[in-house]
Design a protein around this nucleic acid. Structure first.
Lengths: 147, 147
DNA sequence: ACTCAAAGTTTCGCATGCGAACTATTATCT
DNA sequence: AGATAATAGTTCGCATGCGAAACTTTGAGT
């Protein structure tokens, strides 16, 4: 197999896994009338109440502008509150509403059913997975910086 | 580390790698005035001239509707031709224009500079990577079907 | 031949997703 | 204190990305 093909295969592999992940999250989320990214947002805000928008965006690995739109829709859906911070009036405090908290708890069962099987990976495989992911990350970051 | 955290870490890892991949492809693509997905489309149509839209969508791992929009813009940019098939008038034949072919060749150098470093992975790592990816895929697909 | 199902594409409305430009506020420097 | 830089969000225009519904054409069954 030539070099280009090997690179393409790595790409392809990631795209495939992403798609399956996306669909699985979609299944979980849709049962409760939300989207995958909103599900992730519930998790983060559950763990970090009063989070700022930039903090959330970093956790989601998304742009501030994208995150801002996501919060817009979640506020409209009464899942999240967005209030100006008292100490720094540029910042906002994001928290779950009661409805948001309740929804997160309701997803528990489906989430577990969907994603617990991932732990069928042996501990060795899980470690190896993370090791290779880190190696790929550092290779790609180096490649980018050299430009 | 609890089970939920381990699952979240796997998610997080994928999101990180995706983001870096995306930015790298963006660098390559932007140098030539196109987008990452258009770059991938050039590659596929270079290898499979006269491809149909469904075929392309399958290769890109995208919906037909998404792919249709991508082709709209590439036709408008004079990178791709879209013609009704003679044998099956429902289908279309997608091919690169001369400009599309030339553009693909122009990206060669940048693509190589960006992505060849991926082959710093040893052969064992590359195999292990694909093995684990396949395992994750089959785990997730099983989980989904059981619902 | 006629009906109905299936296939291939397109269109629609919506939710991400990005970077650039903008506003408002806070911090810094002299 | 006043000018300037930095920070936190928001808005804008655009490109993916999805599923559902529509459309045309083809195939299958009778």
């Amino acid at each position: 197999m030539d070099r280009e093909q090997r690179i393409t295969n790595i790409f392809q592999s990631y795209r495939e896994v992403n798609k399956v992940f996306y669909h699985l999250m979609l299944n979980v989320a849709q049962e409760h009338g939300i989207t995958p990214i909103q599900l992730m947002t519930l998790r983060i805000l559950k763990e970090q109440p009063q989070a700022g928008l930039s903090f959330l965006a970093a956790k989601l690995n998304l742009n501030n502008s994208t995150t801002c739109g996501i919060i817009d829709r979640m506020v409209k859906a009464d899942l999240v509150t967005r209030e100006r911070s008292g100490t720094d009036r540029r910042a906002v405090n994001l928290s779950l509403t009661d409805r948001g908290k309740a929804l997160w708890n309701e997803t528990e069962a489906t989430r577990m059913k969907m994603f617990l099987p991932l732990l069928q990976l042996s501990v060795e495989e899980e470690n190896e997975f993370h090791r290779i992911q880190q190696k790929i990350l550092s290779i790609l970051r180096d490649a980018r910086e050299e430009v």
